[in-house]
Amino acid sequence: MSEMVVSTAYLSPGTAAAAPVARAKAIQRLQAGDTIFRLLTLFSAVLVLALLGGVIVSLMIGAAPAFQAFGWRFLIEQSWNPVTERFGAIAPIYGTVVTSLIAMVIAVPVGLAIAMFLSELCPMWLRRPLGIAIELLAGIPSIIYGIWGLFVLAPILQTTVQPALIELFGPVPLLSALFAGPPYGIGTLTAGIILAVMVLPFITSISRDVFQTVPAVLKEAAYGLGATRWEVFWQVVMPYARAGVIGACMLALGRALGETMAVTFVIGNAHRISASLLAPGTTISATIANEFTEAVGDLYTASLIALGLLLFVITFIVLAIARYLLMRLEQQEGRA
């Protein structure tokens, strides 16, 4: 900590003035320390960028054998067979997309409804505790969601919800295919529901913050014209907050796409594409988590890393869009 010693000496001019040479030396040392510290922080900031580059490059190198062997067919091939060494990504991609879609279909309306409640309806004294409760949901590690999904949620779904869905949609054409087959409990639908609970807090807390930036004058004007609360929310608050809400949803989507452990517990790990949401499936992340340590052979490992690269690229794009929307919003606020 030479800087601390030097700086106190520097701050007491009595001693420094007595010895001009020592003073010059002290200043020199300070300047050197200043430069070193600045470069150190700059280097750290560069390292964060390098981390991103490193992840992409190393995954590309790791995945190269798989892409060389299968080419673009890797993306559309359905079989995943370690014995014949034929690997294709379409089943995990399909599972990732479908589970995330289910999650968004559930979490977006529910999350927005909670945000509406928190910002427009909720009595003041209840706002903070409820907000904290929702945010604590975001802090729970995914492995906890996984174990809860497997032992608590899946049996409930198996005995009550899924039989009801099968009965309800069985006679309906098209929809019956979505809810066909025996109720396993675990499967694509269960994974989607767990994901919905996990991403809900992101949608709610960001949307609530955005709703609160809507100028009160706008809302009061609408109320003054005789609009109901719902009309104010839907026709004044939502249009004003649209970009932020979309950003929040994209952020949640990015999370859902990449979520690993909770899905791995309840998805059932079956490498096939089933029309039925009740059937077991797999996702990109669940495939990697389940098979990576047991993968023998370079092509198997490379195929799993190629899946990881795909996942990273997809989530990167989604998250980049989310951040872009939210960042523009912050800039607008800064200008206002």
Partner: peptide
């Protein structure tokens, strides 16, 4: 921008890296 993305990037990819 990049850091905000890394904040929500799938952790399993970091494991692969």
């Amino acid at each position: 921008f990049v850091n905000d993305i890394l904040l929500s990037a799938p952790s399993i990819v970091i494991g692969l890296f």
